[in-house]
Design a protein around this nucleic acid. Structure first.
Lengths: 213, 213
DNA sequence: GTCTATAGCTTGATAGAC
DNA sequence: GTCTATCAAGCTATAGAC
């Protein structure tokens, strides 16, 4: 945060992230991105191979950091339980808390990236491929931990439970303000603290209900 | 279903529904839609005012029917309980079952429409507005029923619980095959019967956990 | 690294004949 | 209702000067 003005490449990535998040990949032109980045169109092709490459770099810029803090959170939980298995709540909290925390504390920095992930996760064209590539190695690690916490759980129940978790989590990322409308202002899409208080309990109860039928 | 070949207007709507679902509104051109509908580009503008109007008609074509079958399912549950309140499971089942059933039994007819809804629900640009407009009158009706089934439930817990439900349900609609990859083939995105068996129990447990903290 | 200029194509939409 | 023909605008991407 030392420099006042980010280098051009970063400004392009910032602008692309925000616009892709709002309008989707096809809904935005390179020209719009460069206008928002306050740089000439041709610079997009100096810094990136193509529009698709720009999109890929937007995705890659933050994904490793995200996966690392979630892995650390899981390892911290496991270290607190050297003998027994951690609870389902603790594991789910390690999965969701780092993201919701980031979104609460550095909202402007992270908001658009998470919105992008929400759309990708629900895109028939890209959801299966990109989410698998970027997140499933980490997700498998969490599912292994959940399997130990729910030792008699059927495999299908486990994976479908994760699927429900994934949908709930990523819709939260989308911050569409639908809940603001529906609740008449009682709840706000951007209120990550309220979600953090509720989501792990909600989802843990779901896992346990399915795995003890 | 008497006519072998649908009238042009219906063929355009079918093609638009499928392509919008796969690629998003901006990801598809009117030309592509008309190529798939096997009709000339100019016919799009004879039958519809604009690309945006075509999209709106795609949405409107099925939404009333969906809302009516879900309302009927809720009313049937309430008629089975003239004196006491229905259970949370029964209410959630009435909310999800009609859709998953449709998707299971007439998959080709409904798949793309539901995929479209999944993307809209998670779109920062359209989610808040369109989901509110098309579905929230019905959703309020369901939330009223849930409030009676969970009489001491805090309002915020109730709305956030619905939000988690909405995310889980619409990711299911997206059928991205991510769970196929993640589970190594143990689960399949298109397997609505498996979801129908699991989702109401998972979500009902979540509602009850949040509302009895 | 940044600019001008432009190639080559596709887009949404319309006018007008039949 | 359906076709041909067309327009103005916007698109991705590149070549080449500085």
């Amino acid at each position: 945060m030392a420099k006042e003005k980010h280098p051009t490449r970063e400004r392009i990535l910032d602008a692309a992230e925000e616009l892709f998040a709002n309008k989707g990949y096809e809904g935005v032109s390179v020209r719009q991105i460069m206008r928002q980045a306050d740089a000439d169109v041709s610079l997009a092709y100096y810094h990136f191979k193509s529009k698709q490459d720009l999109f890929d770099q937007v995705m890659l810029r933050r994904v490793e950091y995200l996966n690392s803090i979630r892995l650390k959170a899981l390892e911290a939980v496991e270290e607190r339980h050297p003998d027994d298995a951690p609870s389902v709540e603790e594991i789910i909290d390690a999965f969701t808390h780092p993201l919701l925390d980031l979104l609460a504390k550095e909202h402007d920095e992270w908001k658009y990236y998470f919105q992008l992930i929400a759309q990708i996760n629900n895109s028939p064209e890209w959801g299966g491929e990109l989410m698998t590539r970027y997140f499933d190695p980490l997700v498998r690690r969490f599912i292994d931990a959940l399997r130990k916490a729910l030792p008699d759980c059927d495999e299908q129940d486990l994976f479908w439970s994760y699927h429900f978790l994934s949908g709930a989590l990523t819709l939260t990322f989308a911050e569409t303000k639908r809940i603001d409308n529906l609740s008449g202002g009682v709840c706000r899409s951007s209120d990550m603290a309220s979600i953090n208080e509720r989501m792990p309990a909600f989802l843990a109860a779901g896992f346990k209900a399915l795995c003890s039928r």
